[in-house]
Design a binder for these strands. Sequence first.
DNA 1: ATGCCTCCCCGAGGGAGA
Length: 273
Amino acid sequence: MVAVLAFQFKEAITVKIASFNINGIKAREKALMTWLEEARPDVVLMQEIKSVSEKFPSNLFEDVGYNVAVNGQKSFNGVAIISKLPLEDVVTELPGDGTDDQARWLEATIVGDHAIRMCNLYLPNGNPTPGPKYDYKLKWMHRLYQRAKDLIDSEAPAFMAGDFNIIPQPEDAANIDNWEKDALFLPESRAEFSKIINLGYTDAFRAKNFGSGNYSFWDYQAGAWDRDDGVRIDHFLLTPQCADLLENCKIDKHIRSGEKPSDHVPIWIELSI
DNA sequence: ATGCCTCCCCGAGGGAGA
């Protein structure tokens, strides 16, 4: 009986996992370390590190207890994951196009009572439209759909998170009229995003929050932050098995008014793993 | 708004971002 009770009350651990488009690791080192101390995430998925892997300051994070995985690139793009739990089975390629040399993808697994597959992504912006950059965005989203489908078919707890460069709904923008011909909100972009959602993914933010006025990006230009002219384009999409573990999801909006901020702010989830 | 800032490249001014 004692053994049975002990089994029933075995406690899962809660991990806080954030996604943050930092817009350049070099320019963001200080602001990033300040936020890490304040928010104390167990895992951070970073996008737009704008650094080759060799020059990513891994030691900064290792010194405060994180493991580090990097998929870098010179000048542009680049993604990284830091994690207090060991990072297993690291993969840097989104399948489907061997000629794609842009560093926008990084997968790894963390293990608690459950093994959680984490996919960190920096989805192409796609502007201007129409044009080759928009074609690349849509092609990239087709590849993302296939990976998303494989994850669903695995019936395992997994999520895809990062800068999706997609405004899912009109309520996810302060002024949606300004985005109607933009790659972030064009019908073709949203249709691709919907196809992925319709596989069975949960938008973690919408599962835990209601209403308009919730944004994750404000342009540096034209006083967008001062006018709260933002968009919600950074997302956590959870498989059903992962959604069952979701406890919370928030956006750290106040970070945008800090010293030398990124144009994005962190979004985070808490999972009981 | 064919781009109002900010980032990167480096060491001028252009490409990229969203």
